[in-house]
Simulated scan of single mutants.
Amino acid sequence: MKVKAFDHIVFNVRDVEASAAWYARVLGMEREDSRADDGSTRTSMTFGNNKINLRPISASQQAWFTARTPAAGSVDLCFLTDTPPHAVADHFRALGIAIEQGPIIKKGARGPIRSVYVRDPDGSLIEVSSYA
């Protein structure tokens, strides 16, 4: 057996509304709300063929089948874009988002990438990168 891709990932967040708004405003993702089997609302952020589920850290372990010790702000994730890194940095600055690092060249899965690093509302490290 060999995996080929992610289907979706789950971010544990303190405030679903704040996180959904940030990912939509800052990274251009689309919000999608759905009803779970237990009647609760689940919020996802979609982009391309990908999806991030936003799990409130206050949710019970029974309501969400999840990691043993879920924690908000513990994600380090790299998103790819076709936007040049200087334009990514300009976009973040225009929105008042503090740049932690970059643009800087890093090593991606397929070779060198040009990256800009910011933090989401929970403090997770978000890298936005492009291949040359």
Score class of each variant (00 low, 15 high):
99 I>M: 14
27 L>Q: 00
29 M>K: 03
76 D>C: 03
131 Y>C: 07
109 A>N: 10
111 G>T: 09
28 G>L: 05
45 M>I: 14
52 I>H: 06
123 G>K: 12
32 E>T: 05
129 S>V: 07
117 Y>C: 13
29 M>E: 02
82 D>K: 12
106 K>T: 04
66 T>S: 15
32 E>S: 09
18 A>Q: 14
120 D>H: 12
19 S>R: 00
85 P>C: 09
68 R>E: 13
78 C>E: 05
79 F>H: 04
113 I>L: 12
34 S>P: 02
124 S>M: 12
116 V>N: 04
122 D>N: 13
67 A>N: 08
105 I>W: 08
60 S>I: 04
24 A>L: 01
77 L>D: 00
83 T>R: 13
91 H>Y: 00
24 A>G: 12
105 I>F: 03
92 F>R: 00
43 T>P: 00
19 S>E: 08
32 E>Q: 09
90 D>E: 14
26 V>K: 02
128 V>G: 05
51 K>H: 06
104 I>K: 15
104 I>L: 15
37 D>A: 13
126 I>C: 03
50 N>T: 04
74 S>C: 06
21 A>I: 01
92 F>S: 03
128 V>Q: 07
73 G>H: 12
109 A>F: 11
19 S>P: 11
20 A>Y: 04
91 H>L: 07
100 E>Q: 15
104 I>G: 02
93 R>N: 13
38 D>Y: 06
81 T>Q: 05
109 A>D: 14
64 W>D: 06
51 K>E: 13
55 R>A: 10
121 P>W: 12
26 V>N: 04
83 T>Y: 02
98 A>H: 14
64 W>H: 09
131 Y>P: 10
